[in-house]
Amino acid sequence: MSIDLDLDCRGLLCPLPVIELGKRYVEVPVGGLVAVLADDVAARTDIPAWCRMRGQEFVGEEEPGRYVVRRLS
């Protein structure tokens, strides 16, 4: 899987990883992939919830603490 943007959010507490994702996902083209590396436990729920609320695609937790999102719009 080719990731267009890697966001290292380790050490950041909620809601900072989601804020980082919300600010920076526009850096990838529509259809592109963003990977968020986060160790805050809330990210496991909040990143898929962000995708649902913002109309983006949650691809999955590719490995523990690494969440992949596809920009749809």
């Binding site: 507490l13 909620c14 809601p15 989601v18 805050d40 436990v41 809330a42 496991r44 729920t45 909040d46 898929p48 919830a49 962000w50 609320m53």
Partner: peptide, 24 residues
């Protein structure tokens, strides 16, 4: 029910189980 407001620093299990946003 956000993690930062809980003594355990973990988000609400209820919100987590529902799959809805836990922060804010």
């Amino acid at each position: 029910g956000s993690a930062c407001t809980a003594s355990t620093l973990t988000p609400s299990r209820v919100l987590e189980a529902m799959g809805v946003l836990t922060h804010g």
